[in-house]
Each structure stands twice: as structure tokens, then as C-alpha cells.
Computed example of a mutant assay.
Amino acid sequence: MDDPSPTMHDPNTQSQQDYTYREALEAYFQESLGSGVEKMENFTKYTPRQTLARFLARYEIFKLIENVHGSIVECGVLFGGGLMGFANISTILEPYNFQRKIIGFDTFSGFPEVAAEDLEGLLERKSTHLKKGGFAAPNAYEDLKQSIEVFNKNRFLSHFSKVEVIKGDFEETCEKYISDHPHLVISCLYLDFDIYKPTKVAIEKLVNRIPKGGVIVFDELNEEAFPGETIAVMEMIGIPNLRIRRFTFEPRISYAVIGE
């Protein structure tokens, strides 16, 4: 999942220092000078370095696929920061590319189930969110739709849809989306479901729509707290079949370029 809010932090994966910092940041943001828009214009005063690192990683990923045809599909949206990050980067770097959609899938009600594969191993750092309903984000879908409406007021070719958000169980919504959009080509498949079953379905249904030079991004590969993603990749693709790369400044995100 994309960066959670402070209320969704996990004591098994977050330190007390993380909590202390976020409490101080929340207080500073509320008390700091300026209107809401002025604060956003000075966002580096308030944005955690980890979040900035993830945005920079998305920028680097986008640069890899800038000249690859196809849409960006993000599997696991949560509050939408990552999805809208890609949307803004695309709008800035290629304002006239109306064929590059930014498509996000999420239940917004949390994990529909947790499979046995998600619970394999000792899991000393098992996430407290690794359960049915984990990472639920009530009202996030409606909030994100409003965000997209505002976003559309500040871009070229706004009469073309740019960002699409699909709500529901991925096994069902993926099939319907492909049926309704048989032309779909994917330049970047961002796997951030965290858990085994929807990750496996995403690989099965969507990887064959990625051309050579396109990218698969992994958010929990080699992650002890969420082993299901790695197991799905091992079963469906095979780790030795991928040249998996990473960024020096962001520890969780990894990626593979198709055809390398």
C-alpha cells in the first residue's frame, strides 16, 4: 500500500521515534504560518523525507517508461498519494499524451482475505494490518474522486480522462476492466497490493499487456512483513527470470524492466 496515515502506523514495523516525529510534524503543520495552499506550495517543510523519497522513486520509474507506450496501472491505492504522484509527473513531463492513463485499483475496504501464503515463515515483523480488512480506508474513494476533479482543473487536454480509480475486489474489477478496455497496454505495472492472491491475479492478467521496455514495480518484494507478494512473483514469474533493481535512497521499492 501507499504511505499510510499516522493513524495506520504499525508498532511492529515503526519505532517510537517514528511516532514522536509524526506527532511533532502534525503539530507544526497545524500551527505553521500560511494558508492551506501556501503550505502546499512549501510542501518540503512538512513532507517526511520517506515520502519525498518515494515520490522521487516514482519520478525515476516514470523516466524509465517515458518513451514506452501504455498506461500506468497501480495495484493498491489507499489514499491515492502515489497514484496522483504519477498523474502529476505525467502531466508535467508529457502534457499532450492523452493516451497515458493513470489507473488505480483498490477495495478501499481493506484486504478481502489473507491467504496462507501471506502468513508463511516466522514473521517476526508481521504487520498488524495483515488480516481481513487490513488497511481499510473508509471514504478514501470519494475523497480521491474529488482530488481528481480538482486536478483536472490544472492540466492540458482536460476533456480527456487522465486518472481512473476502480473500487472493489480486484479479481472481479480486473476482469471487468479488461473486458471494457480490451485495448489496454501497460507501460508500468505497480504492484502494491501487499498480499498474495490479488498480486498473483495482477501478474496473471496484466503482465502480458506490458511491452518490452515496460516496467513492473514491486513495493513489498523481499519484505518480511508481507511475504505474499514475493511468493506470488516466485510462482508466476520466477525471481531468476527478472533483473530486479532498486534505488539507493528508497529501501522498499524495486523494479524490473521487461525484456532485459
Rank of each mutant, 00 (worst) to 15 (best):
V257D: 10
I103H: 05
Q16N: 08
V163D: 09
R100V: 08
I237G: 01
I186Y: 09
L33Q: 13
A137S: 15
G36Q: 12
S71P: 08
E41F: 13
E41S: 07
V215L: 05
G81S: 09
L78R: 07
I216A: 04
T7Y: 11
V215N: 12
R49F: 14
Y46F: 15
G76S: 07
E223R: 09
L184V: 06
G36A: 08
A87M: 11
E229L: 03
L93M: 10
F108Q: 07
E26K: 13
E142S: 13
F62I: 01
L25K: 01
E66K: 15
I103E: 08
S187G: 11
T199F: 00
S71W: 11
Q16C: 06
P48D: 05
Y21W: 12
Y46P: 06
N42A: 14
G110Q: 02
H159Q: 13
E164G: 01
G121A: 11
E38Y: 13
E74A: 00
S35A: 02
I237H: 03
I92Y: 06
Q146N: 12
V150S: 07
D192K: 01
G213H: 06
V165P: 05
M234I: 07
P138G: 03
F170P: 00
A27D: 14
G82F: 03
E149A: 11
L78Y: 12
I210S: 04
V215K: 13
R246V: 08
E250P: 02
T107F: 07
F226I: 03
P95K: 01
